[in-house]
Amino acid sequence: MLRLALVFLKIGVAAYGGGWTIVGIIRTEIVGRAWMSAEEFAKLVAMAQITPGPVALNAATLVGYRLHGLLGAAVSTLAVVAAPVALSLLIGGFFAKATKSGARLTEALKTGTIGLIAMTVWAFAPAAVSSWLNVAIALTAFAVSAFTRINPLWIIIGSGVIGAATRAFFG
């Protein structure tokens, strides 16, 4: 339990770049430590996506719940937001004064954040090529969210329905 808290504290500190980057870091930490299998984690991400609220928080809560029940859910959620909340309180105003050094830091963070998202893409890419249907779904999701302003939720739900129908009709 203590290790769970420490891992999520660490994740929170580097949680730059928004939800999916954070999900990628959580995956690396949790699957990398063999606390959960890649398939289990994939199910969990699917659930986190279709629940209201920030996807990264949902994923953190679910991992905690799966590993240590209700208390684990509370611990992982609070641990993952601890650093962001503390930093927002303490130095939020400091960053706001966008000086030249602020701009440099922003660029440096971008370099790191693109690295993190690359790791996330790399981690999830194998799932896209496991079947022809998944290839098609992944390409559609990419096109819609890169080139249109359609809410990705519709793709997620649509793809979920396709998945359910496939399973229902073809087993």
Binding site: V45, Q49, I137, G160
Partner: peptide
């Protein structure tokens, strides 16, 4: 099946973000 389908979009979404 629904969860598998909902997860199948994740590679596409993350790639679009990158």
């Amino acid at each position: 099946g629904f969860l598998d389908g909902a997860f199948a979009v994740v590679p596409g979404l993350t790639a679009a973000l990158a």
